[in-house]
């Protein structure tokens, strides 16, 4: 069984459980080459888990994950590591190595995987830093960086080895508007300039839909909506509409299930004495 050549990633009938909770239930989706795919859904739907499954850090209970023509979980250790060299991942908080400077962090994959001379490493690193606009910050330490800057450095590091796929885990969460604008622009321009395929995991609807070519909305371990951003926005499903438009109440209720209001405030349970 192989893949459709247009797709970089194919997920087929993926089932994954954590403890007794089902995270993914017979999930299937495909991500075409060169596109930006946004995977969205409420917190806790396992979006980060999906990235870890794609990267081979977790094994599915059932189903397959195919990346660039190979079945990820059938690879041996060495082959999996080879595959990972073609992937870049941007963790939610950057995950920079705290004992190395910005320059050294971006140079890290080059130093570990190649035997390039120092001058070449320097040029490559500065080029990548320049692409994210942080060439001047090369000697700073991760502790000195703001959250947004740390993520940009992590992005530079993720593209150092010129991967085919970059995965972004909640890149927009908690960022100020300017940084948001920078990140959004970077993700799109890098994807196009370097011919990457990008997977964007996020629940920031506005930002994600502004640059995504394709949107998947996940809930309860299944795909509840998929298509271009316009398609999903104009979806018929009330649930999808509530999510995309950020409505406080709808199919996902505002109130967590609780006994009737009167019972808590007026009844015996409230401890108030019945008036004589």
């Amino acid at each position: 069984m192989s893949m459709d050549g247009d797709n970089l990633i194919e997920i087929r009938n993926l089932t994954f459980r954590r403890g007794s909770k089902v995270i993914f239930d017979d999930l299937s989706l495909a991500i075409p080459r060169g596109s930006i795919a946004a995977i969205m859904g409420p917190s806790g739907t396992g979006k980060t888990t999906l990235l870890k499954l794609i990267g081979g850090q977790l094994r599915p209970e059932r189903g397959e994950v195919w990346v660039d023509g190979v079945n990820v979980h059938k690879l041996r250790h060495a082959e999996l590591y080879e595959l990972r060299k073609r992937m870049g991942m941007l963790f939610q908080h950057g995950a920079l190595l705290t004992d190395l400077s910005v320059f050294e962090n971006v140079a890290f994959p080059l130093r570990e995987h190649t035997r390039l001379p120092e001058s070449m490493i320097r040029d490559l690193v500065l080029m990548k830093l320049n692409a994210v606009g942080l060439r001047g910050a090369r000697d700073m330490m991760p502790a000195e960086l703001s959250g947004g800057m740390a993520r940009r450095v992590a992005l530079a590091r993720a593209i150092t080895m010129d991967p085919r796929l970059v995965m972004y885990d909640e890149p927009f969460t908690g960022q100020d508007p300017i940084t948001l604008g920078v990140l959004v622009r970077l993700i799109r321009s890098l994807n196009d300039a370097l011919g990457l395929t990008s997977i964007l995991v996020s629940h920031d609807v506005a930002e994600a839909t502004s640059i995504a070519d394709h949107v998947y909305v996940l809930a309860d371990g299944k795909v509840v909506a998929s298509g271009s951003p316009e398609d999903v926005n104009g979806s018929d499903s009330p649930w999808v509409r509530q999510f995309m438009q950020g409505l406080p109440d709808g199919p996902v209720p505002f109130h967590y299930p609780a006994p009737p209001l009167a019972g808590d405030f007026l009844g015996e349970a409230s401890g108030k004495e019945k008036s004589a």
């Binding site: 990267g55 850090q57 590591y81 080879e82 595959l83 990972r84 060299k85 992937m87 870049g88 991942m89 963790f91 939610q92 908080h93 995950a95 920079l96 190595l97 705290t98 890290f108 994959p109 570990e112 995987h113 992590a154 590091r157 080895m161």
Partner: peptide, 18 residues
């Protein structure tokens, strides 16, 4: 432990560094 909780170890794994 700190490297593990700040995902530095996970990051390394994803960069194909054991």
């Amino acid at each position: 432990g700190l490297m593990k909780s700040t995902e530095q170890l996970g990051g390394m794994e994803m960069m194909a560094v054991d």
